[in-house]
């Protein structure tokens, strides 16, 4: 066992050196791939950005329309348009959104600030609650609570987020009237008057939906990990030294499961992102999800590309953190010394 650890450490050192350059290259390739793919998808879609811009009933002359199209470069060949967009991007110019008629970067900044709040709260909440539920269920494996949690999670994992959202909306907002139907603030209230309480109140249902939608994975993972660990040698030894189940949990289990669980939670950023887009649409929450829907429906190429890039970066960051955490868990890297 010693041998394999020692053998693993040179690899760990190598990995540490290669890491930053490799990450940058991978991220760059990812962004190029995502932007090309999104570009093809949008330009091939049947939606005509010009029609959606001027409106189907527009009385604008053909000549004026042509002028607009030429201004946007809509008549140029697709590769040329892509390269032009990419060139502008390198100068920090994301372009102007057709839908909102404002710079893409402003819209993304504004919408992300709403979405990040929603996502981070749901992420933390589902992480903490899921972890606690997983620990409790695993400790009483086969018991009533365990069975209930397992069923609950399996059902949730196969339930679509928008369906959960609709369910929450119709029950809590429509039937009980406890929460607003949607949006991020009371309708018609001037933005300057919107209070923190307003924001929080409007966040509750979307957060709840997103939390519930993403809690299944972490709960089942934690439970499984705990069950595996219970038969592990160091738990057996701690038990042989007189530790009670409570002491085992506090002293060894939580600590040893927390790190892999956090890793899993980071790795599920992409699912969280997808769930968030759907939850936002159901609740008309003005985040990145609803902006995506609007942009797609309007053939808003610059906005969609901008959103695609930022979303990819976000998910990439989640996976990167997860990978680094895996590295921390790797005994070879650990033997290298720097992480603990």
């Amino acid at each position: 066992m010693r041998g394999t650890r020692l053998a693993a450490s040179p690899g760990g050192v190598m990995r540490k050196i290669i890491l930053p350059a490799g990450i940058a290259a991978r991220m760059f390739l990812l962004l190029i791939a995502v932007s090309i793919l999104s570009f093809i998808l949008i330009t091939e879609s049947p939606i005509d950005p010009l029609t959606s811009y001027v409106g189907a009933e527009s009385t604008l002359s053909e000549a004026a329309k042509d002028e607009i199209a030429a201004h946007w470069g809509l008549n140029d060949p697709a590769p040329e348009r892509y390269l032009k967009w990419a060139g502008n991007l390198l100068r920090g110019d994301f372009g102007v959104s057709i839908t909102y008629k404002r710079p893409v970067i402003d819209i993304i900044r504004e919408r992300f600030s709403y979405s990040v709040v929603l996502m981070m709260i749901a992420w933390a909440l589902s992480g903490v609650l899921g972890f606690a539920m997983g620990i409790c269920a695993g400790l009483r494996r086969g018991g009533v609570f365990d069975k209930a949690v397992k069923t609950f999670c399996l059902v949730l994992q196969s339930a679509p987020t928008f369906w959960l959202g609709l369910l929450a909306l119709s029950f809590f907002s429509v039937t009980l009237g406890w929460f607003p139907i949607g949006m991020a603030a009371p309708i018609g209230k001037p933005a300057v008057d919107v209070t923190f309480a307003d924001r929080a109140y409007h966040l509750i249902l979307p957060v709840l939906t997103l939390t519930v939608a993403s809690i299944g994975k972490i709960t089942l993972y934690t439970r499984q990990k705990l069950i595996e660990m219970m038969d592990g040698n160091f738990i057996l030894f701690a038990r042989a030294r007189g530790e009670t189940t409570g002491q085992l949990t506090r002293r060894h289990l939580i600590r040893n499961i927390a790190l892999p669980a956090v890793t899993v939670q980071f790795a599920s950023f992409s699912e969280l992102f997808g769930g968030m887009a759907l939850a936002e649409t159901v609740f008309s929450y003005p985040g990145i999800g609803t902006a995506t829907t609007a942009a797609a429906l309007n053939g808003d190429v610059p906005l969609l590309l901008g959103i695609a890039l930022f979303s990819a970066l976000f998910v990439f960051a989640g996976n990167l953190i997860a990978n680094i955490l895996y590295g921390v868990l790797d005994p070879g890297l650990k033997a290298g010394g720097d992480y603990v």
Partner: peptide
């Protein structure tokens, strides 16, 4: 115990 992996690594 028989081997060092009876120690909690963390």
């Amino acid at each position: 115990p028989q081997s060092p992996d009876y120690l909690d690594p963390l």
